[in-house]
Design a protein around this nucleic acid. Structure first.
Length: 103
DNA sequence: TACATGACTATCC
DNA sequence: GGGATAGCCATGT
């Protein structure tokens, strides 16, 4: 568990229910300029049920590759239950779900 | 220590 | 507008 990962997860927990953030925004918030670093931290997610890693999506509104790695299409429904609507192609259907970090 | 990889993004044909 | 390219940072081998 690196300090960087802790920051990633801490930031994730600040995301209110029904909101999502992009890798880029998250990385900027943490002070780095690499969204891939975020992905690395997330895929090593030690607390998968606790950390809402499914609230981190690509900047273009696509869920990204983690969806297939996890379950099937249940993630979309899970997010939908939280208020984040995706269409059947895995694209974010509403721009109102985007969350901006206060920093 | 050095090189390769990735759940990404921005730019350039 | 869509595909290819090159930076980007942290990790793992």
């Amino acid at each position: 568990m690196t300090a960087f990962q802790k920051q990633v997860f801490a930031a994730l927990l600040e995301i209110p229910e029904g909101k999502v953030v992009s890798y880029g925004e998250l990385s900027s918030y943490l002070g780095v300029q690499s969204a891939q670093a975020i992905g690395q931290a997330l895929k090593n997610n030690p607390d998968s049920p606790q950390v809402p890693c499914h609230r981190v999506i690509r900047k273009d509104g696509n869920l990204g590759g983690f969806m297939g790695s996890l379950e099937n299409n249940n993630k979309r429904d899970l997010l939908k239950a939280e208020g984040v609507i995706f269409d059947n192609t895995g694209q974010l259907s509403t721009t109102e779900a985007w969350y901006s970090f206060p920093k």
